[in-house]
Design a protein around this nucleic acid. Structure first.
Lengths: 244, 244
DNA sequence: GGAATAGTGTCTCTTAGACACTATTCT
DNA sequence: AGAATAGTGTCTAAGAGACACTATTCC
Protein backbone atom coordinates (compact mmCIF):
# COMPACT_ATOMS: atom_id res chain seq x y z
CA UNK A 1 0.00 0.00 0.00
CA UNK A 2 2.67 2.45 0.78
CA UNK A 3 6.00 0.71 0.98
CA UNK A 4 5.08 -0.24 -2.43
CA UNK A 5 5.03 3.32 -3.54
CA UNK A 6 8.31 4.13 -1.86
CA UNK A 7 9.78 1.62 -4.26
CA UNK A 8 8.08 3.30 -7.15
CA UNK A 9 9.61 6.57 -6.12
CA UNK A 10 6.60 8.20 -4.48
CA UNK A 11 7.75 9.22 -1.07
CA UNK A 12 4.85 11.12 0.46
CA UNK A 13 7.21 13.24 2.52
CA UNK A 14 8.57 14.59 -0.74
CA UNK A 15 5.10 15.68 -1.80
CA UNK A 16 3.62 19.09 -1.35
CA UNK A 17 1.92 18.89 2.04
CA UNK A 18 -1.53 17.31 2.07
CA UNK A 19 -3.86 18.41 4.82
CA UNK A 20 -6.92 16.49 5.98
CA UNK A 21 -10.00 18.24 7.30
CA UNK A 22 -13.42 17.13 8.43
CA UNK A 23 -16.56 19.03 7.47
CA UNK A 24 -19.87 18.39 9.18
CA UNK A 25 -23.37 18.55 7.71
CA UNK A 26 -25.35 18.92 10.93
CA UNK A 27 -29.11 18.82 10.51
CA UNK A 28 -31.85 19.63 12.94
CA UNK A 29 -35.49 20.61 12.85
CA UNK A 30 -36.59 23.98 14.22
CA UNK A 31 -40.05 25.45 13.91
CA UNK A 32 -41.11 22.77 11.49
CA UNK A 33 -38.29 23.43 9.04
CA UNK A 34 -35.06 21.60 8.31
CA UNK A 35 -31.96 23.57 9.33
CA UNK A 36 -28.25 23.08 8.77
CA UNK A 37 -25.45 24.40 10.94
CA UNK A 38 -23.29 26.95 9.11
CA UNK A 39 -20.40 29.20 10.09
CA UNK A 40 -19.49 32.49 8.54
CA UNK A 41 -15.88 32.52 7.48
CA UNK A 42 -13.73 35.23 8.96
CA UNK A 43 -10.65 34.72 6.81
CA UNK A 44 -9.62 34.33 3.22
CA UNK A 45 -10.36 32.52 1.08
CA UNK A 46 -14.11 32.99 0.91
CA UNK A 47 -14.10 35.42 3.83
CA UNK A 48 -17.63 36.50 4.67
CA UNK A 49 -19.19 33.47 3.00
CA UNK A 50 -21.01 30.77 4.85
CA UNK A 51 -19.55 27.30 5.06
CA UNK A 52 -20.00 23.99 6.80
CA UNK A 53 -18.27 23.78 10.17
CA UNK A 54 -15.04 21.87 10.01
CA UNK A 55 -11.33 21.94 10.54
CA UNK A 56 -8.08 20.05 10.49
CA UNK A 57 -7.77 16.68 12.12
CA UNK A 58 -5.37 16.55 15.04
CA UNK A 59 -2.48 14.14 15.26
CA UNK A 60 -3.93 11.87 17.89
CA UNK A 61 -7.60 11.77 16.97
CA UNK A 62 -9.54 9.47 14.67
CA UNK A 63 -11.79 10.91 11.97
CA UNK A 64 -15.10 10.44 13.80
CA UNK A 65 -13.61 12.09 16.89
CA UNK A 66 -12.56 15.06 14.82
CA UNK A 67 -16.07 15.41 13.42
CA UNK A 68 -17.62 15.20 16.89
CA UNK A 69 -15.17 17.78 18.19
CA UNK A 70 -15.90 20.22 15.39
CA UNK A 71 -19.60 19.88 16.01
CA UNK A 72 -19.17 20.29 19.74
CA UNK A 73 -17.10 23.43 19.28
CA UNK A 74 -20.10 25.15 17.76
CA UNK A 75 -23.01 23.61 19.55
CA UNK A 76 -21.90 21.77 22.62
CA UNK A 77 -22.37 18.12 21.91
CA UNK A 78 -25.78 16.82 22.85
CA UNK A 79 -25.92 13.24 24.06
CA UNK A 80 -28.27 11.91 21.40
CA UNK A 81 -26.52 13.17 18.30
CA UNK A 82 -26.00 10.62 15.53
CA UNK A 83 -22.87 11.06 13.41
CA UNK A 84 -21.90 9.04 10.36
CA UNK A 85 -19.39 9.48 7.59
CA UNK A 86 -20.61 10.85 4.29
CA UNK A 87 -17.85 11.01 1.69
CA UNK A 88 -14.42 12.45 0.98
CA UNK A 89 -13.39 15.13 -1.48
CA UNK A 90 -9.90 15.79 -2.71
CA UNK A 91 -9.95 17.57 -6.05
CA UNK A 92 -6.60 19.33 -6.41
CA UNK A 93 -8.02 22.84 -6.71
CA UNK A 94 -10.82 22.72 -4.17
CA UNK A 95 -8.88 24.93 -1.77
CA UNK A 96 -6.75 27.59 -3.44
CA UNK A 97 -3.91 27.49 -0.94
CA UNK A 98 -2.88 23.87 -0.66
CA UNK A 99 -3.97 20.32 -1.26
CA UNK A 100 -6.76 19.56 1.13
CA UNK A 101 -8.66 16.29 1.42
CA UNK A 102 -11.90 16.75 3.30
CA UNK A 103 -13.81 13.93 4.97
CA UNK A 104 -17.43 14.94 5.43
CA UNK A 105 -19.75 13.78 8.17
CA UNK A 106 -23.50 13.85 8.55
CA UNK A 107 -25.06 14.57 11.95
CA UNK A 108 -28.69 14.36 13.07
CA UNK A 109 -29.55 16.25 16.19
CA UNK A 110 -32.66 17.01 18.23
CA UNK A 111 -33.42 20.65 19.04
CA UNK A 112 -29.94 21.97 19.70
CA UNK A 113 -29.45 25.40 21.22
CA UNK A 114 -28.27 28.31 19.12
CA UNK A 115 -24.62 27.83 18.29
CA UNK A 116 -21.84 30.02 19.58
CA UNK A 117 -19.35 31.07 16.96
CA UNK A 118 -16.24 29.04 17.61
CA UNK A 119 -12.83 30.67 17.85
CA UNK A 120 -12.50 30.03 14.17
CA UNK A 121 -15.57 31.71 12.72
CA UNK A 122 -17.10 35.15 12.51
CA UNK A 123 -20.54 33.77 13.22
CA UNK A 124 -22.43 30.51 13.46
CA UNK A 125 -26.11 29.80 13.02
CA UNK A 126 -28.77 27.24 12.18
CA UNK A 127 -29.98 28.19 8.72
CA UNK A 128 -33.12 27.00 6.95
CA UNK A 129 -32.34 24.57 4.17
CA UNK A 130 -34.70 26.32 1.79
CA UNK A 131 -33.17 29.77 2.33
CA UNK A 132 -29.45 29.28 1.94
CA UNK A 133 -26.79 31.48 0.44
CA UNK A 134 -24.25 29.97 -1.89
CA UNK A 135 -21.68 28.23 0.28
CA UNK A 136 -17.89 28.44 0.24
CA UNK A 137 -15.65 25.88 -1.48
CA UNK A 138 -17.57 22.81 -2.69
CA UNK A 139 -19.82 22.85 0.33
CA UNK A 140 -23.01 23.18 -1.71
CA UNK A 141 -22.27 19.80 -3.20
CA UNK A 142 -21.41 18.25 0.16
CA UNK A 143 -24.60 19.61 1.70
CA UNK A 144 -26.62 18.28 -1.21
CA UNK A 145 -25.21 14.81 -0.78
CA UNK A 146 -25.82 15.01 2.94
CA UNK A 147 -29.46 15.90 2.41
CA UNK A 148 -30.00 13.07 -0.01
CA UNK A 149 -28.35 10.66 2.42
CA UNK A 150 -30.54 11.91 5.24
CA UNK A 151 -33.69 11.47 3.18
CA UNK A 152 -32.69 7.97 2.19
CA UNK A 153 -31.73 7.00 5.73
CA UNK A 154 -35.16 7.87 7.07
CA UNK A 155 -36.54 5.18 4.83
CA UNK A 156 -34.73 2.18 6.22
CA UNK A 157 -33.40 3.26 9.62
CA UNK A 158 -35.11 4.62 12.74
CA UNK A 159 -32.93 7.76 12.68
CA UNK A 160 -35.97 10.02 12.47
CA UNK A 161 -36.20 9.47 16.21
CA UNK A 162 -32.92 11.35 16.70
CA UNK A 163 -34.67 14.56 15.56
CA UNK A 164 -37.28 14.48 18.30
CA UNK A 165 -37.26 14.37 22.09
CA UNK A 166 -36.64 11.19 24.01
CA UNK A 167 -40.37 10.55 24.10
CA UNK A 168 -42.56 11.64 21.26
CA UNK A 169 -45.93 11.19 19.62
CA UNK A 170 -46.50 9.50 16.30
CA UNK A 171 -47.60 12.85 14.93
CA UNK A 172 -44.28 14.43 15.94
CA UNK A 173 -42.46 11.60 14.24
CA UNK A 174 -44.55 12.11 11.13
CA UNK A 175 -43.58 15.77 11.23
CA UNK A 176 -39.93 14.76 10.96
CA UNK A 177 -40.60 12.71 7.86
CA UNK A 178 -42.70 15.42 6.28
CA UNK A 179 -40.07 18.06 6.99
CA UNK A 180 -37.06 16.10 5.77
CA UNK A 181 -38.80 14.66 2.74
CA UNK A 182 -40.73 17.82 2.01
CA UNK A 183 -43.99 16.00 1.31
CA UNK A 184 -47.20 15.62 3.31
CA UNK A 185 -47.94 12.10 4.53
CA UNK A 186 -51.26 10.50 5.27
CA UNK A 187 -51.70 10.65 9.05
CA UNK A 188 -53.71 7.46 9.48
CA UNK A 189 -51.60 5.27 7.25
CA UNK A 190 -48.36 6.60 8.70
CA UNK A 191 -49.59 5.87 12.19
CA UNK A 192 -50.46 2.26 11.46
CA UNK A 193 -47.29 1.72 9.47
CA UNK A 194 -44.94 2.96 12.18
CA UNK A 195 -46.56 0.73 14.78
CA UNK A 196 -46.36 -2.26 12.45
CA UNK A 197 -42.59 -2.09 11.98
CA UNK A 198 -40.96 -4.24 14.68
CA UNK A 199 -38.65 -2.33 16.99
CA UNK A 200 -39.18 1.11 15.49
CA UNK A 201 -40.96 2.60 18.50
CA UNK A 202 -42.14 1.24 21.82
CA UNK A 203 -44.96 2.59 23.91
CA UNK A 204 -44.32 4.28 27.25
CA UNK A 205 -47.84 3.96 28.62
CA UNK A 206 -47.90 7.75 28.94
CA UNK A 207 -49.82 10.32 26.94
CA UNK A 208 -49.35 14.01 26.33
CA UNK A 209 -50.60 16.27 29.10
CA UNK A 210 -53.35 17.76 27.01
CA UNK A 211 -54.59 17.62 23.47
CA UNK A 212 -53.15 19.73 20.71
CA UNK A 213 -53.43 23.53 20.76
CA UNK A 214 -56.27 23.28 18.29
CA UNK A 215 -58.07 20.37 19.91
CA UNK A 216 -57.96 16.63 19.63
CA UNK A 217 -57.45 13.78 22.08
CA UNK A 218 -54.27 13.21 24.06
CA UNK A 219 -51.65 11.36 22.05
CA UNK A 220 -49.75 8.34 23.31
CA UNK A 221 -46.06 8.82 23.89
CA UNK A 222 -43.43 6.50 22.45
CA UNK A 223 -39.69 6.15 22.69
CA UNK A 224 -37.23 4.77 20.14
CA UNK A 225 -37.20 0.98 19.92
CA UNK A 226 -34.17 -1.26 19.54
CA UNK A 227 -34.33 -1.85 15.81
CA UNK A 228 -31.38 -0.54 13.83
CA UNK A 229 -33.00 -1.17 10.47
CA UNK A 230 -36.66 -0.91 9.53
CA UNK A 231 -38.31 -4.00 8.05
CA UNK A 232 -40.28 -3.27 6.05
CA UNK A 233 -38.94 0.17 5.18
CA UNK A 234 -40.97 3.37 5.04
CA UNK A 235 -40.52 4.29 1.42
CA UNK A 236 -40.86 7.84 0.16
CA UNK A 237 -43.93 8.43 -1.95
CA UNK A 238 -43.03 7.44 -5.51
CA UNK A 239 -41.65 10.45 -7.32
CA UNK A 240 -42.86 9.82 -10.82
CA UNK A 241 -39.93 9.08 -13.06
CA UNK A 242 -39.31 11.49 -15.89
CA UNK A 243 -38.46 8.50 -18.04
CA UNK A 244 -41.25 7.21 -20.24
CA UNK B 1 -12.62 25.63 7.45
CA UNK B 2 -8.91 26.06 7.57
CA UNK B 3 -8.07 29.72 7.94
CA UNK B 4 -10.13 29.35 10.95
CA UNK B 5 -7.77 26.83 12.35
CA UNK B 6 -4.71 28.87 11.54
CA UNK B 7 -6.16 31.39 13.92
CA UNK B 8 -6.63 28.76 16.54
CA UNK B 9 -3.00 27.82 16.22
CA UNK B 10 -3.39 24.69 14.15
CA UNK B 11 -1.08 25.16 11.22
CA UNK B 12 -1.20 21.89 9.29
CA UNK B 13 2.30 22.43 8.01
CA UNK B 14 3.46 22.19 11.59
CA UNK B 15 1.83 18.80 11.97
CA UNK B 16 3.51 15.48 11.53
CA UNK B 17 3.05 14.69 7.87
CA UNK B 18 -0.31 13.21 6.90
CA UNK B 19 -0.38 11.02 3.83
CA UNK B 20 -3.50 10.16 1.84
CA UNK B 21 -3.87 6.86 0.05
CA UNK B 22 -6.62 5.18 -1.91
CA UNK B 23 -7.44 1.50 -1.48
CA UNK B 24 -9.63 -0.35 -3.94
CA UNK B 25 -12.06 -3.20 -3.27
CA UNK B 26 -12.34 -4.58 -6.80
CA UNK B 27 -14.90 -7.35 -7.23
CA UNK B 28 -15.50 -9.68 -10.13
CA UNK B 29 -17.11 -13.03 -10.74
CA UNK B 30 -15.02 -15.95 -11.97
CA UNK B 31 -16.20 -19.51 -12.29
CA UNK B 32 -19.38 -18.75 -10.45
CA UNK B 33 -17.66 -17.35 -7.37
CA UNK B 34 -17.11 -13.83 -6.14
CA UNK B 35 -13.47 -12.74 -6.24
CA UNK B 36 -11.59 -9.71 -4.91
CA UNK B 37 -8.35 -8.31 -6.27
CA UNK B 38 -5.50 -8.60 -3.75
CA UNK B 39 -1.80 -7.86 -3.84
CA UNK B 40 0.89 -9.55 -1.81
CA UNK B 41 2.97 -7.02 0.03
CA UNK B 42 6.68 -7.08 -0.64
CA UNK B 43 7.76 -4.65 2.05
CA UNK B 44 7.34 -3.99 5.73
CA UNK B 45 5.06 -3.56 7.46
CA UNK B 46 2.98 -6.63 6.83
CA UNK B 47 5.44 -7.97 4.26
CA UNK B 48 4.14 -11.21 2.77
CA UNK B 49 0.56 -10.50 3.76
CA UNK B 50 -2.18 -9.88 1.27
CA UNK B 51 -3.76 -6.47 1.04
CA UNK B 52 -6.11 -4.42 -1.09
CA UNK B 53 -4.42 -2.67 -4.00
CA UNK B 54 -3.80 0.98 -3.32
CA UNK B 55 -1.28 3.73 -2.99
CA UNK B 56 -0.60 7.39 -2.44
CA UNK B 57 -2.53 10.02 -4.29
CA UNK B 58 -0.44 12.15 -6.62
CA UNK B 59 -0.33 15.92 -6.42
CA UNK B 60 -2.36 16.64 -9.51
CA UNK B 61 -4.97 13.90 -9.44
CA UNK B 62 -8.41 13.77 -7.88
CA UNK B 63 -9.39 10.89 -5.62
CA UNK B 64 -11.43 8.92 -8.18
CA UNK B 65 -8.58 9.24 -10.68
CA UNK B 66 -6.17 7.83 -8.13
CA UNK B 67 -8.46 4.85 -7.52
CA UNK B 68 -8.83 4.19 -11.24
CA UNK B 69 -5.08 4.43 -11.71
CA UNK B 70 -4.36 1.97 -8.91
CA UNK B 71 -6.83 -0.49 -10.36
CA UNK B 72 -5.43 -0.07 -13.84
CA UNK B 73 -1.89 -0.67 -12.63
CA UNK B 74 -2.85 -4.19 -11.64
CA UNK B 75 -5.43 -5.14 -14.18
CA UNK B 76 -5.42 -2.79 -17.12
CA UNK B 77 -8.57 -0.78 -16.87
CA UNK B 78 -11.50 -2.35 -18.65
CA UNK B 79 -13.96 0.05 -20.25
CA UNK B 80 -17.03 -1.04 -18.32
CA UNK B 81 -15.67 -0.90 -14.79
CA UNK B 82 -17.83 0.92 -12.26
CA UNK B 83 -16.01 2.74 -9.47
CA UNK B 84 -17.55 4.48 -6.48
CA UNK B 85 -16.26 5.78 -3.21
CA UNK B 86 -16.75 3.63 -0.13
CA UNK B 87 -15.44 5.32 3.01
CA UNK B 88 -12.36 6.82 4.61
CA UNK B 89 -10.27 5.54 7.49
CA UNK B 90 -7.83 7.54 9.52
CA UNK B 91 -7.29 6.00 12.94
CA UNK B 92 -3.95 7.26 14.20
CA UNK B 93 -2.33 3.84 14.54
CA UNK B 94 -3.62 2.11 11.43
CA UNK B 95 -0.24 2.31 9.76
CA UNK B 96 2.72 1.96 12.13
CA UNK B 97 4.99 4.36 10.29
CA UNK B 98 3.03 7.56 9.90
CA UNK B 99 -0.39 9.06 9.88
CA UNK B 100 -2.21 7.75 6.86
CA UNK B 101 -5.76 8.56 5.86
CA UNK B 102 -7.07 6.05 3.35
CA UNK B 103 -10.00 6.68 1.02
CA UNK B 104 -11.45 3.37 -0.12
CA UNK B 105 -13.19 2.71 -3.41
CA UNK B 106 -15.43 -0.07 -4.60
CA UNK B 107 -15.14 -1.37 -8.17
CA UNK B 108 -17.35 -3.81 -10.09
CA UNK B 109 -15.81 -5.40 -13.12
CA UNK B 110 -16.75 -8.01 -15.70
CA UNK B 111 -14.36 -10.92 -16.31
CA UNK B 112 -11.03 -9.15 -16.03
CA UNK B 113 -7.83 -10.93 -17.04
CA UNK B 114 -5.42 -12.22 -14.42
CA UNK B 115 -3.64 -9.28 -12.86
CA UNK B 116 0.04 -8.56 -13.27
CA UNK B 117 1.80 -7.67 -10.06
CA UNK B 118 2.42 -3.94 -10.22
CA UNK B 119 5.82 -2.48 -9.54
CA UNK B 120 4.76 -2.19 -5.98
CA UNK B 121 3.73 -5.72 -5.05
CA UNK B 122 5.26 -9.18 -4.84
CA UNK B 123 2.20 -10.71 -6.44
CA UNK B 124 -1.36 -9.90 -7.42
CA UNK B 125 -4.33 -12.20 -7.88
CA UNK B 126 -8.08 -12.54 -7.91
CA UNK B 127 -8.93 -14.41 -4.73
CA UNK B 128 -12.20 -16.11 -3.84
CA UNK B 129 -14.12 -14.19 -1.22
CA UNK B 130 -14.86 -17.35 0.73
CA UNK B 131 -11.22 -18.45 0.90
CA UNK B 132 -9.31 -15.42 2.07
CA UNK B 133 -6.32 -15.05 4.34
CA UNK B 134 -6.35 -12.39 7.00
CA UNK B 135 -5.50 -9.14 5.30
CA UNK B 136 -2.95 -6.48 6.19
CA UNK B 137 -3.78 -3.29 8.10
CA UNK B 138 -7.54 -2.77 8.53
CA UNK B 139 -8.28 -4.16 5.10
CA UNK B 140 -10.53 -6.93 6.41
CA UNK B 141 -12.88 -4.28 7.66
CA UNK B 142 -12.72 -2.29 4.44
CA UNK B 143 -13.41 -5.39 2.39
CA UNK B 144 -16.32 -6.29 4.63
CA UNK B 145 -17.89 -2.90 4.17
CA UNK B 146 -17.31 -3.11 0.44
CA UNK B 147 -19.07 -6.46 0.24
CA UNK B 148 -22.06 -5.20 2.17
CA UNK B 149 -22.23 -2.13 -0.06
CA UNK B 150 -22.08 -4.30 -3.16
CA UNK B 151 -24.86 -6.55 -1.90
CA UNK B 152 -27.04 -3.58 -1.08
CA UNK B 153 -26.35 -1.87 -4.40
CA UNK B 154 -27.58 -4.86 -6.37
CA UNK B 155 -30.95 -4.31 -4.77
CA UNK B 156 -31.70 -0.85 -6.03
CA UNK B 157 -29.30 -0.24 -8.92
CA UNK B 158 -28.69 -2.10 -12.18
CA UNK B 159 -25.00 -2.58 -11.32
CA UNK B 160 -25.31 -6.35 -11.56
CA UNK B 161 -25.03 -5.81 -15.30
CA UNK B 162 -21.43 -4.58 -14.85
CA UNK B 163 -20.44 -8.11 -13.81
CA UNK B 164 -21.54 -9.72 -17.06
CA UNK B 165 -20.76 -9.25 -20.75
CA UNK B 166 -22.29 -6.48 -22.79
CA UNK B 167 -25.12 -8.80 -23.78
CA UNK B 168 -26.33 -11.43 -21.39
CA UNK B 169 -29.17 -13.77 -20.59
CA UNK B 170 -31.54 -13.42 -17.66
CA UNK B 171 -30.05 -16.60 -16.25
CA UNK B 172 -26.56 -15.10 -16.33
CA UNK B 173 -27.88 -12.03 -14.55
CA UNK B 174 -29.51 -14.23 -11.96
CA UNK B 175 -26.18 -15.93 -11.48
CA UNK B 176 -24.66 -12.58 -10.50
CA UNK B 177 -27.30 -12.02 -7.84
CA UNK B 178 -26.98 -15.54 -6.51
CA UNK B 179 -23.20 -15.30 -6.33
CA UNK B 180 -23.01 -11.88 -4.70
CA UNK B 181 -25.86 -12.49 -2.29
CA UNK B 182 -24.91 -16.09 -1.67
CA UNK B 183 -28.47 -17.35 -1.91
CA UNK B 184 -30.37 -19.29 -4.61
CA UNK B 185 -33.15 -17.36 -6.31
CA UNK B 186 -36.28 -18.68 -7.95
CA UNK B 187 -35.61 -18.74 -11.69
CA UNK B 188 -39.13 -18.06 -12.88
CA UNK B 189 -39.92 -15.26 -10.46
CA UNK B 190 -36.54 -13.62 -11.02
CA UNK B 191 -37.08 -13.67 -14.75
CA UNK B 192 -40.45 -12.00 -14.60
CA UNK B 193 -39.30 -9.50 -12.02
CA UNK B 194 -36.28 -8.31 -14.01
CA UNK B 195 -38.37 -7.77 -17.11
CA UNK B 196 -40.98 -5.86 -15.12
CA UNK B 197 -38.57 -3.23 -13.79
CA UNK B 198 -38.54 -0.33 -16.26
CA UNK B 199 -35.12 0.34 -17.79
CA UNK B 200 -33.27 -2.49 -16.10
CA UNK B 201 -32.61 -4.50 -19.28
CA UNK B 202 -33.61 -4.14 -22.89
CA UNK B 203 -33.95 -6.93 -25.42
CA UNK B 204 -31.55 -7.23 -28.33
CA UNK B 205 -33.71 -9.49 -30.48
CA UNK B 206 -30.88 -12.01 -30.41
CA UNK B 207 -30.65 -15.34 -28.64
CA UNK B 208 -27.77 -17.52 -27.58
CA UNK B 209 -26.28 -19.70 -30.33
CA UNK B 210 -27.44 -22.92 -28.78
CA UNK B 211 -29.11 -24.10 -25.61
CA UNK B 212 -27.22 -24.73 -22.40
CA UNK B 213 -24.60 -27.49 -22.19
CA UNK B 214 -27.14 -29.64 -20.44
CA UNK B 215 -30.06 -28.87 -22.69
CA UNK B 216 -32.82 -26.33 -22.75
CA UNK B 217 -34.04 -23.79 -25.29
CA UNK B 218 -32.00 -20.86 -26.56
CA UNK B 219 -32.13 -17.90 -24.21
CA UNK B 220 -32.88 -14.35 -25.30
CA UNK B 221 -30.05 -11.88 -25.01
CA UNK B 222 -30.40 -8.53 -23.26
CA UNK B 223 -28.24 -5.51 -22.69
CA UNK B 224 -28.26 -3.03 -19.81
CA UNK B 225 -31.09 -0.50 -19.98
CA UNK B 226 -30.91 3.18 -19.17
CA UNK B 227 -32.30 3.08 -15.63
CA UNK B 228 -29.89 4.21 -12.94
CA UNK B 229 -32.13 3.09 -10.12
CA UNK B 230 -34.47 0.12 -9.98
CA UNK B 231 -38.13 0.80 -9.22
CA UNK B 232 -39.30 -1.33 -7.66
CA UNK B 233 -36.10 -2.71 -6.17
CA UNK B 234 -35.05 -6.36 -6.15
CA UNK B 235 -34.89 -6.99 -2.43
CA UNK B 236 -32.77 -9.72 -0.91
CA UNK B 237 -34.76 -12.59 0.52
CA UNK B 238 -35.70 -11.62 4.06
CA UNK B 239 -33.02 -12.77 6.45
CA UNK B 240 -35.05 -13.59 9.49
CA UNK B 241 -34.20 -11.15 12.23
CA UNK B 242 -32.68 -12.63 15.34
CA UNK B 243 -34.82 -10.25 17.32
CA UNK B 244 -38.02 -11.73 18.68
C1' DG C 1 -36.57 -40.76 -25.04
C1' DG C 2 -34.95 -38.48 -20.85
C1' DA C 3 -33.06 -34.58 -18.58
C1' DA C 4 -32.27 -29.86 -18.12
C1' DT C 5 -33.48 -25.22 -19.03
C1' DA C 6 -36.27 -20.75 -20.77
C1' DG C 7 -40.15 -18.61 -20.15
C1' DT C 8 -45.22 -18.04 -18.76
C1' DG C 9 -49.62 -18.65 -15.96
C1' DT C 10 -51.84 -18.59 -11.67
C1' DC C 11 -52.68 -18.34 -6.89
C1' DT C 12 -51.77 -16.53 -2.17
C1' DC C 13 -50.02 -13.38 1.16
C1' DT C 14 -48.21 -9.00 2.44
C1' DT C 15 -48.00 -4.14 2.08
C1' DA C 16 -49.01 0.73 0.39
C1' DG C 17 -52.38 3.84 0.04
C1' DA C 18 -57.14 5.84 -0.34
C1' DC C 19 -61.08 6.69 2.22
C1' DA C 20 -64.24 6.55 5.99
C1' DC C 21 -65.32 6.74 10.66
C1' DT C 22 -65.30 7.21 15.89
C1' DA C 23 -63.63 9.27 20.03
C1' DT C 24 -61.45 12.94 22.40
C1' DT C 25 -60.11 17.56 23.40
C1' DC C 26 -59.68 22.68 22.67
C1' DT C 27 -61.84 27.22 21.69
C1' DA D 1 -71.49 23.60 19.31
C1' DG D 2 -67.87 23.43 16.06
C1' DA D 3 -63.25 22.42 14.69
C1' DA D 4 -59.22 19.87 14.92
C1' DT D 5 -56.76 15.78 15.97
C1' DA D 6 -55.63 10.54 17.51
C1' DG D 7 -56.35 6.31 16.26
C1' DT D 8 -58.82 2.32 13.85
C1' DG D 9 -61.49 -0.23 10.10
C1' DT D 10 -61.94 -1.45 5.43
C1' DC D 11 -61.22 -1.81 0.65
C1' DT D 12 -58.17 -1.91 -3.55
C1' DA D 13 -54.06 -2.38 -6.18
C1' DA D 14 -49.41 -3.88 -6.57
C1' DG D 15 -45.70 -6.77 -5.70
C1' DA D 16 -43.17 -11.05 -3.66
C1' DG D 17 -42.99 -15.69 -3.76
C1' DA D 18 -44.68 -20.60 -4.29
C1' DC D 19 -46.02 -23.81 -7.57
C1' DA D 20 -47.32 -25.65 -11.93
C1' DC D 21 -46.82 -26.06 -16.69
C1' DT D 22 -45.25 -25.79 -21.71
C1' DA D 23 -41.75 -25.54 -25.15
C1' DT D 24 -37.12 -26.15 -26.62
C1' DT D 25 -32.63 -28.11 -26.80
C1' DC D 26 -28.70 -31.36 -25.53
C1' DC D 27 -27.15 -36.08 -24.60
Amino acid sequence: MDDSEFLAGYDPRAFPAVAVTVDVVALTIREGALHVLLVERGEQPHAGRWALPGGFIRPDEDLPEAAARELAEETGLAPRVHIEQLASYGAPGRDPRMRIVSVSYLAFAPRLPDPRAGSDAADAAWRRIDRLPELAFDHDRILGEGLERARAKLEYTPLATTFVDETFTITELRGVYETVWGVPLHAGNFHRKVLSVPGFVEGTGQTTEGGGTRGGPRARLYRAGDARLLHPALLRPAREEAAG
